[in-house]
Write a protein that binds this DNA or RNA. Structure first.
Lengths: 225, 225
DNA sequence: CCCTGCTCTGAGGATTTTCTGAGATCCATC
DNA sequence: GATGGATCTCAGAAAATCCTCAGAGCAGGG
């Protein structure tokens, strides 16, 4: 039916009885489920496969659930994550969200509630950002008009002109763009060509020297060398 | 065992023999029960604690049962309520439902029936508590039109427009919403776009600066950074 | 009918962005 | 290594945008 567009889901829990039941139920709902019974296996699958949703138990052998999640997040794994836990205190929830969880469910739970929350998470993932890779730097997030850094040190927001300039460079990454060309497309046409220098300086200040390279006497180009 | 996630239940009745028996039975079933022997105490507990279910006798000292319930409802206490009464006329039921009761049981009753109805109420509470995670902030409780804060400092109730605005942002958490779009969906279409600014200000005042972030020149977006 | 809370307007001040210009630094060439 | 143009850096003015909040109007409950 819709197996071609099936939602890929990673389930990490050491309770084999639970994983068997859940994976059956989720498969019935049309999800394509992979199961990991410990943290190491979960980490491996999370890094090598492309999931839309992850369901992770806090108490895991090898690598603890929140540790697993924050490791995945540090590698820019963006799948929506739901944490299962035995405890339901506020401090617990906070820890989960801090590790990068999108939702949180306390055991024992109603299976229907888990399914409903997974659906909600998936619905949100569908609208994931359109992001353009910026080489070694990170990703340019078009919807949010910011740059997600590959180092995991968060996001850098760009102003409208900074974004427009970087986008032009990204669209033709190997081309050398003259100041006149960039000025005409990005800035008001009465502006001096040196406005481009200034905005290249702004981009380098925010994103690092190597984001734009100068071709002496000609103009600018994306990236280094 | 799972006391952390036990269902919290408030029992308000002046018949100490009945409350003793019921609280024992309910504790055996895994509920965490608080007992109030008069309306004042019940009001105090209902306002200061967070219950999922309340069982309230109509005939109470100090504050009458239906009065107690409607006072709690006016303070946006959303726990499911079951009213105990000696009379069972239709007019009586209507009065109970008007006061905000979810169910109604006529004395004398079978204890098993009371337990079954409490279970049903609790199940309804879980189903109705469609709580949408708000990132770092907490949870948006659609049924109760309020926000459960992750800091543990209780609930914040929202006005109709505040709720509608936040819900729109939550439904597409990664999208940037323009003022025009938000104005058209939430407010009267003759309103100035700045009405959105004002309500974003209200949300931030109630829920913290980070609940909504500004994308300069474009609009607003859920969450921080 | 009064009171409370909600909705919306408008205006100021605060903040961010855009653009200019000027000195410092770099680079190709003589 | 001297020269002159190209480029980098950055302070600050001007413009655009956003935040904050007082208050008017209105609806609903007591």
């Amino acid at each position: 039916m819709d197996t071609a567009s099936a939602v890929r889901l990673l389930l990490v829990d050491d309770d084999r009885e639970l994983t068997d039941m859940l994976s059956d139920l989720l498969a019935e709902e049309g999800y394509q489920v992979d199961v990991a019974l410990d943290g190491h296996h979960g980490l491996h699958l999370g890094l090598t496969q492309d999931y839309q949703v992850m369901v992770i138990d806090r108490a895991l052998p090898a690598i603890e659930g929140l540790d697993l999640l924050s490791r995945l997040r540090r590698k820019a794994v963006g799948a929506r994550a739901l944490i299962l836990t035995a405890r339901g205190t506020v401090a617990d929830r906070v820890a989960g969200l801090d590790a990068g969880a999108d939702d949180y469910l306390v055991k024992p739970f109603e299976v229907d509630e888990l399914l409903a929350r997974i659906r909600a998470l998936h619905r949100r993932h569908i609208e994931a950002a359109e992001s353009i890779p910026l080489g070694a730097m990170g990703w340019l997030d078009v919807a949010r008009r910011d740059v997600l850094l590959r180092t995991g040190s968060g996001r850098v927001t760009l102003s409208a002109k900074e974004f427009a300039l970087l986008r032009l460079l990204v669209e033709r990454p190997r081309a050398v763009h003259t100041r006149a060309e960039l000025r005409d497309s990005v800035f008001v046409d009465t502006a001096a060509e040196s406005i481009v220098d200034t905005y290249v300086y702004y981009l380098r200040r925010k994103l690092g020297k190597t984001i734009v390279s100068t071709v002496h006497g000609l103009g600018y180009q994306l990236g280094d060398v």
